[in-house]
Simulated assay, not measured.
Amino acid sequence: MHIEYDRENDTAYVSLVAHIADGAAVRQIPVTGIGADAEVFLDVDASGRLLGIEVIGAEAALPAEALEQSTSTR
């Protein structure tokens, strides 16, 4: 698992596989019930395998420790 965090846009991406090829994620599934300050989407491949998790409003949805240990993209 690897987390990339964009502080400027407060978005995070949690990769669950070592490498996600361009175009591998063919579907984004919205996750409900997260709260008004965050949006979460599951990226899945054509076989339905979960590749990663996109979090918009990451500070509201993820623990501060996870964001501090992430790779910062900005």
Rank of each mutant, 00 (worst) to 15 (best):
T11I: 15
Q28W: 14
A12M: 07
Q28T: 01
T71N: 06
A64F: 00
Y13R: 09
L62W: 10
Y5S: 00
D37I: 05
N9S: 12
S47Y: 01
T71Y: 00
E54A: 12
A61F: 08
G57A: 01
A25G: 12
I20C: 09
D37T: 08
A66C: 05
A21Q: 15
D45A: 02
A60Q: 08
A12H: 06
G23P: 11
L67S: 00
S47I: 00
S72P: 03
L51T: 09
E8W: 00
D6F: 09
L42I: 10
M1A: 13
V17A: 07
H19I: 12
F41N: 10
Y5W: 10
A66S: 14
F41S: 13
L67H: 01
R74A: 14
A66W: 15
A21G: 14
D43F: 05
L62N: 08
D22H: 09
E8M: 04
D6P: 01
G35F: 08
Y5N: 04
D37M: 13
L50T: 02
G33R: 07
I56D: 11
T32N: 12
L50N: 01
V14I: 15
M1R: 12
S47A: 15
A46W: 00
A58C: 12
F41W: 07
D43M: 13
G23R: 03
L50H: 10
S47H: 13
Y13G: 07
A21C: 04
Y13H: 09
S72G: 11
I29A: 02
A36S: 14
R49Y: 06
F41L: 14
E68P: 00
L16C: 10
D10M: 03
S47E: 15
T73L: 09
R74L: 05
A60T: 02
N9I: 05
L51W: 07
G33H: 05
E8R: 11
M1D: 12
L51S: 08
N9G: 07
V55F: 07
N9M: 09
T71G: 05
S70Y: 04
G52H: 08
E68W: 00
L50P: 01
Q69Y: 03
Q69G: 05
A58V: 03
A38L: 07
V17N: 09
N9Q: 14
I29Q: 11
R49M: 08
G48V: 10
A66E: 09
E54R: 06
I34Y: 09
E39V: 11
Q69F: 03
V26S: 11
H2R: 15
D6Y: 04
A58L: 07
G23L: 12
L51F: 07
I53Q: 02
L42N: 07
